[in-house]
Design a protein around this nucleic acid. Sequence first.
DNA 1: TCACTGGCCACCT
DNA 2: CAGGTGGCCAGTG
Length: 196
Amino acid sequence: MECFNIEINKIHDKIIISTYKTDKLYFSVGISSSTHKIVGISLPQDEIDESVAEISYRYLEYELSDNYIEIAKTISKIYKGENVNFDLKSLDLETPESKNIKSVVRTPFEREVLIQTSKIPFGDVRTYKYIAEKLGTKAYRAVGTALGKNPFPIVIPCHRVVKSNMKIGEYRGGSEMKKEILKNEGIIINEDRIIN
DNA sequence: TCACTGGCCACCT
DNA sequence: CAGGTGGCCAGTG
């Protein structure tokens, strides 16, 4: 019974996962075999299994391949502070038509949060409050929760969203990782706080 | 339905 | 400035 429930909560689509290794870190990207859009990106991991699992866990079926390794490599470059223009159209931002259908972005609210976040310029930051106000709501905390589930970290720069007092705030990969990405983009940080 | 839970915010000591 | 408190509100079960 347990297993059955876990199975039906997974997405019924096969994906291809490619992984690129650099500086002892693994970067993975998942592509849908039906839509050919990106359905998942992993934060840098020390182990390849962790890196793959971060994307594969939502899916019933996946296979490893080097087909999309250039995309994974590009993501590693962005992580290291290269300002690469990434086309949002390559990401699967679809939301489910009904509750029975599963997708990586689950609700319109989450989708809008991701789209607003994608507009934050390289080397700059915005606050959770700012994103909420752009959506016409006071759900500041819900913005944080939505970004915590961001299926496309690094490419959709949730690391550029910080607290109102300019403190770093939380991050799925830990606030140290968030600081590192921001520093790579040239942002000055002192004692967990953004300077200007 | 209703009561949690949160990558937050503002205000008060 | 740090820590506590009440307030938001989207998701979840």
